[in-house]
Amino acid sequence: MLVHPSLRARHPRRAARTAAGVLGVGASVLAGFAWFDPATPTVDQRWASWAVALLAAALAACCLRIDPHRSDRLGLLTAAPALGAVLVCVQAWHTGDVSASVQVFLALPVVAAATQLRAGGAGVAVATAVVGDLVLTLHLMPTGAALTDVVFVGTTLAVVAAVLVRLEDAQAADKAELARLAAVDTLTGLVTRRVLDDALATALSSAASAQGTALILVDVDEFKAINDGHGHPVGDDALRHLAAVLARSVREDDAVVSRMGGDELAVLLPGCSADVAATRADDLVNAVRAAPLPLADGTVLPITISVGVAQVPRHAVGLRELYAAADAALYTAKRAGRDRWATAAA
């Protein structure tokens, strides 16, 4: 059985270690109290506490031994904090102790659930703890006092869980935003070099790319002259304009367009032969030449590019070699007069 995503762990491996830790500590505490606490005077009560402690220890071992991702899919990591709350209530039932010092242990599985599981999983832990506390206090206390205790304990657990879940959600959102910023160049909107490297490594290791993988490096001709003659804001506009032209000139589903840094961009073409890559490079040069940048004064700024093309396996055998071959072809195009493309030497 697969559990709903809202009940799953945020990080299964970390959640498994946390569950094991909470259950292991709980087992140790229960075993210690069963041995030393005078509140459990009878042999039966002591054996009951030891049995609960042994069960908790066994659950902790399962959390460590079973693959955490499989445990998460099956709902074991969601069930662990709830089972921890049940164990606390069972131990209190057998010892007849429902004091605040016992009920406070219900916070341990709830905190573990709120920090390791998503909102639904934390809700399951809170609900289990509150129901268990209700059954326990009604069994051992007068009804009025029991309901008062449950209201205070339940409210505290729910508020703590809600605050922790909200903090975890905010932290996850911050991390996702940082990852997005690291993956996207803020000036051009293209992906960064890191994303391109990952995509290139995947393409080179994919058996499906039987035709090979091509890399096109693009450099803006006389970019320094653009900055010096028109100012850096126009230079930024030129890069944004170029990025848009390149993105329009390739199909999004079979190409990755990236800003490498400065005025250098790249186009990755997985599953692309050397001949097709050369045709694409020629198309890019012509597309940029045909799309000058409109300026604020109504004039247009011609932009041209130099392009280097390399392909695995024709020109290189790996990632570093592919970059080196494409870079060498790029400089060949620049030395030949710019506004053109060149392929790497076989």
Rank of each mutant, 00 (worst) to 15 (best):
H241N: 09
D97Q: 15
L217H: 05
V126T: 03
T18D: 02
R240D: 00
P292G: 02
V22T: 01
D221A: 06
Q171C: 05
L136I: 03
A31W: 11
V267N: 12
V218E: 09
S209L: 13
Q91R: 13
D237W: 01
V131D: 05
Q91L: 11
V257G: 03
R8Q: 12
R17L: 14
R10H: 08
G231T: 07
A346R: 15
T42E: 14
L54I: 09
D327E: 14
A56G: 02
L196T: 04
A39V: 10
G84Q: 12
A172C: 12
L7Y: 03
L83Y: 10
H69D: 15
R338N: 01
V245E: 02
P68T: 09
D282S: 13
A112Q: 04
R73A: 15
V285Y: 04
C272E: 01
T304R: 01
D149V: 14
V98W: 12
L295M: 11
P294Q: 05
M260I: 15
P68H: 09
D253S: 15
G26T: 02
P233K: 06
Q311L: 07
D185I: 04
G26R: 00
A60W: 02
T148N: 11
D67Y: 13
G144E: 07
A172Q: 13
L106M: 10
W93T: 13
W35R: 10
A225V: 10
T156D: 08
V153E: 12
C89M: 14
V307G: 10
P313F: 08
G235M: 04
R251V: 09
S258I: 11
D253K: 12
V191A: 04
D169A: 14
V88D: 08
V110C: 08
L204P: 00
H11S: 11
Y331M: 07
G120K: 06
A146W: 06
D254S: 15
Y331L: 09
H241A: 07
A60T: 05
V130E: 01
L215D: 03
A176I: 00
A125K: 00
A127Q: 01
A9S: 11
P109L: 04
A296P: 00
E177C: 01
L30E: 06
L268R: 06
M141A: 14
A58P: 02
V88L: 08
D283I: 09
T115F: 03
A100T: 14
L157E: 01
A183W: 05
A183E: 09
R193V: 11
A53S: 13
S306M: 07
A107E: 05
T40C: 11
A244S: 12
P12W: 02
A112H: 02
